[in-house]
Simulated scan of single mutants.
Amino acid sequence: MAWSTQQLAELADTTVKAVRYYHRIGLLDVPERTANGYKQYKVPHLIRLLQIKRLSDLGVPLSEVAAMGRADEDPDEAIRALDAELEATVARLNRVRAELAVILRHRAPAYVPPAFAPVSRGLSDRQRSLLLIYSTVLSEESTEEFRELLSEPDHTDEEFEALPPDADDAAIDRLAARMLPAVRRAREKHPWSKDPAADAPRGAKHAEHTMAEAMVQLYNPAQLQVLKRLAALLAEDAADTSYGTA
Score class of each variant (00 low, 15 high):
W3Q: 04
T5G: 07
Q7P: 02
A9T: 07
A12I: 07
A12L: 05
T14N: 01
A18T: 10
A18Q: 08
V19G: 04
V19Y: 01
H23S: 05
I25N: 01
G26A: 06
G26D: 00
L28R: 02
V30C: 02
P31H: 05
E32Y: 02
R33A: 09
A35R: 10
K39I: 00
L46P: 02
L46W: 05
L49C: 08
L50A: 06
L50M: 08
K53N: 09
K53T: 12
D57L: 07
V60Q: 01
S63R: 12
V65L: 08
A66R: 12
R70T: 12
A71H: 08
E73Y: 15
E73C: 15
D76H: 12
E77L: 15
R80P: 04
D83A: 15
V90T: 09
L93K: 13
R95L: 11
V96E: 08
R97S: 14
R97K: 14
L100P: 01
R105W: 02
P113N: 11
G122I: 12
L123V: 09
L123W: 01
Q127Y: 03
R128Q: 13
S135N: 11
V137G: 05
L138H: 03
S139M: 07
S139N: 08
E144I: 12
E144D: 14
F146D: 04
E148R: 15
L150S: 06
D154V: 13
H155V: 14
E158L: 10
E159K: 10
E159Q: 13
E161M: 09
A162M: 10
L163T: 10
P164W: 05
D168M: 07
D169S: 12
I172S: 02
R174L: 07
R174C: 03
L175T: 08
A177Y: 02
R178C: 03
L180V: 03
A182Y: 00
R184P: 01
R187G: 13
E188G: 14
H190A: 06
S193E: 00
D195V: 10
A197P: 03
A207F: 04
H209L: 14
T210G: 07
M211A: 15
M211L: 15
A212T: 15
E213G: 12
M215Y: 04
P221A: 08
P221S: 07
A222P: 00
V226E: 03
K228N: 06
L230Y: 04
L233I: 08
D240T: 10
D240R: 08
